[in-house]
């Protein structure tokens, strides 16, 4: 979808031409994106959170995760010294929340990347090689699509050892089928365009067509899809951590919720322990969803999403 035909300008070489065309498309994309208030808000939140994650060591210091040097008493309510209170070891919850940003974002991004990468690969090849390969692959995809994702992820997380990578893997390999489906549909429509025919006639091989023609054309869709998958991935990470299937030695938002529950925060009324990590998860998931929807409606205004 996206890039339209180029206005035939003075020929500055095909590469530069393509580059200029892409720059123009990006600028137009941004202009349209800006019109969606929700999308801009989501993006702003994401930029802010990304900055917090990157600056975590500067903001709260590396020592804030240490239990032996914990500055506060156990489970102190919010105060001037500890704006969000302390956990059961006396560590500042605000500091832990900031550290957790890194893990949750990393897992979310990696898992989404893995999921979308698998989905794109499967989708493009299935769309391109239409014969038995495409059929078989799509059968497998359909089958994965109907598997209960959470159940499968829980099962995988149980089967493998507890680590960050397990979580990434469990999410990645269970969420790709939707992407594969979307990408395949898009691939089919791109490949029916005349210029692909031309390229093939000129001797373009499978690899050439898929990587040079199809991939750039499905990228915008993939981008939108990635944003949405990240939101799902962050929630799934929190869910797995909450069920005790994450790496307990790493501070993540879901892990904080699990710690809070283990410490008995729910029945002791320690809301300050429970509320912030959940809110953080919801905010980030929502921000990614908003961005994803905006990207999608910019790319395909017919959808009427969020108009």
């Amino acid at each position: 979808m996206t890039t339209t035909t180029t206005d035939t300008a003075r020929t500055p070489g095909p590469r530069a031409l393509a580059r200029a065309r892409r720059r123009r498309a990006a600028a137009r994309f941004w202009r349209q994106y800006r019109d969606h208030r929700a999308g801009v808000a989501g993006l702003a939140v994401l930029v802010l959170i990304a900055l917090v994650a990157l600056a975590a060591p500067l903001l709260v210091g590396a020592g804030s995760q240490s239990v032996t040097d914990a500055p506060g008493g156990p489970l102190e309510p919010p105060s001037g010294a500890f704006p969000l209170g302390t956990d059961q070891f006396g560590r500042s919850l605000l500091a832990l929340l900031v550290w957790g940003t890194r893990v949750s974002l990393t897992v979310g991004l990696l898992a989404a990347f893995l999921s979308v990468a698998i989905g794109t690969l499967v989708g493009i090849t299935a769309g391109h090689f239409k014969g038995w390969y495409g059929n078989v692959v799509m059968r497998v995809t359909d089958w994965f699509l109907v598997m209960p994702t959470l159940v499968l992820a829980i099962a995988l997380a149980t089967v493998l050892s507890r680590s960050l990578w397990t979580t990434v893997l469990a999410i990645g390999v269970t969420t790709w089928p939707t992407t594969a489906r979307l990408v395949r549909a898009q691939t089919l429509s791109v490949e029916s365009r005349p210029y692909i025919e031309r390229s093939r006639a000129l001797g373009g091989g499978h690899g050439h067509i898929m990587s040079r023609h199809v991939l750039p054309n499905v990228m915008p869709l993939v981008l939108a899809q990635t944003t949405l998958v990240i939101s799902t991935a962050i929630l799934t990470e929190a869910t797995l951590a909450f069920l005790g299937l994450g790496d307990p030695t790493i501070v993540s938002w879901g892990g904080l919720l699990q710690d809070a529950r283990e410490a008995g925060a729910v029945s002791s009324g320690n809301w300050w322990y429970l509320a912030p990590p959940g809110l953080a998860i919801a905010v980030v998931a929502l921000a990614f969803t908003l961005c994803g929807r905006t990207v999608e409606s910019v790319l395909n205004p017919r959808l009427g999403v969020n108009r």
Partner: peptide, 9 residues
């Protein structure tokens, strides 16, 4: 066991 937080509350 009840957690320390639960016992305290």
């Amino acid at each position: 066991s009840l957690t320390p937080a639960q016992a305290a509350s």
